[in-house]
């Protein structure tokens, strides 16, 4: 879905030019008040003092960011050292999201290519098959994945039954389970942009390469891949970004050892134990990282478009 958002739409007419502002007003109001203003409010909260039972005291403070990056001892009077706890959680999230993106690429690229080279009539049906699971509740999909992978679950039963293994493989509560869960959550985001790029690719280029005796895999790597690179990068971003901030897959499939940003943030707003300014600060740091990635991506895309035409 988000893939479509990249292109703003080209064919415009001005039939309803006069009514334009009135037509836009409701969306401006709702998104401005309930999405944009809250994000600004979150920025403010990240610079406030924490209230011990959840919520904030309206006193400006850098404590939240300080706690994120520095360790000043139990009573806050020791010389500041770098605090590794939260940086490690962020690093793990980046690493896990990266691994999930790679897994999605390895499976998603051949799938997208295969679908795009089917006869034109049946392509929408293949795309539909790939996207159906995406529309099933993410929670249900993640729970289903956990059910399947459990030690006593159907997958281990099946493998033991066929004699391939003697004792169950522990998959749940490992890094791999989280990666698999993220892969399962966001795969269509990888397949759709690559599919769109391959569909636009001019296959007479591959034919020309074959005429000049290029082996097929060389053609794929040297001719096809550079041509569809924007689609591949878009797919990677669209999987990486939501993976980094995901909550359900690490929470249900990862267990306590594989804590990611999403769980760290969630914990700060739960019951009386949380720390709202710290949660707001961690969210701001995550949001900043995501916006930087999207900005670099947008600049590259516009560069590629200007250079291409």
């Amino acid at each position: 879905m988000a893939a479509g958002a990249a292109s703003g739409g080209s064919a415009t007419t001005d039939t309803y030019k006069e009514a334009r502002n009135w037509l836009l007003l409701p969306s401006w109001a709702v998104l401005g008040i309930f999405v944009l203003a809250p994000v600004c409010m979150m920025l403010v909260y990240s610079f406030l003092t924490k209230e011990f039972r959840g919520g904030v005291i309206w006193e400006p403070s850098l404590a939240a960011y300080d706690q994120f990056f520095f360790d000043r001892g139990l009573f806050g009077d020791e010389p500041a050292k770098i605090e590794w706890t939260y940086i490690t959680i962020f690093w793990r999230s980046i690493w896990q999201a990266g691994a999930a993106t790679l897994l999605s690429l390895v499976i998603g690229f051949p799938t997208a290519y295969f679908i795009a080279t089917r006869p034109e009539r049946v392509r929408p049906f293949w795309v539909f098959l790939i996207t159906i699971p995406y529309w099933v509740n993410l929670l249900i999909r993640t729970v289903s994945m956990k059910f399947l992978l459990r030690d006593q679950g159907p997958l281990n039963d099946f493998l033991i039954g066929t004699g391939l293994i003697d004792s169950p493989i522990h998959i749940v509560n490992t890094n791999f389970a989280v990666q698999l869960g993220l892969f399962y959550s966001y795969l269509p985001f990888m397949v759709l942009p690559i599919y769109a790029a391959v569909e636009r690719y001019n296959f007479s280029l591959s034919e020309a390469a074959a005429d000049l005796y290029a082996p097929k895999w060389v053609t794929l790597r040297r001719i096809v891949l550079p041509a569809i690179k924007p689609g591949v990068i878009a797919g990677c971003i669209l999987v990486f970004v939501p993976s980094m901030g995901s909550f359900l897959a690490p929470d249900l499939l990862g267990g306590a050892k594989n804590f990611m940003i999403g769980s760290l943030i969630e914990e700060q707003f739960k019951g009386n134990a949380g720390n709202w300014p710290f949660g707001a600060a961690a969210s701001m740091i995550l949001l900043t990282m995501v916006l930087i990635i999207l900005l670099i991506f947008a600049r590259q895309q516009s560069k590629a478009e200007n250079g291409g035409s």
Binding site: F34, S246, S283
Partner: peptide, 18 residues
């Protein structure tokens, strides 16, 4: 497209705070 770009957990935190 803002709700698609901002990570869902960030939107959730922001809305709660708001």
């Amino acid at each position: 497209s803002l709700p698609l770009m901002v990570p869902e957990i960030v939107t959730a935190v922001a809305t709660l705070i708001f």
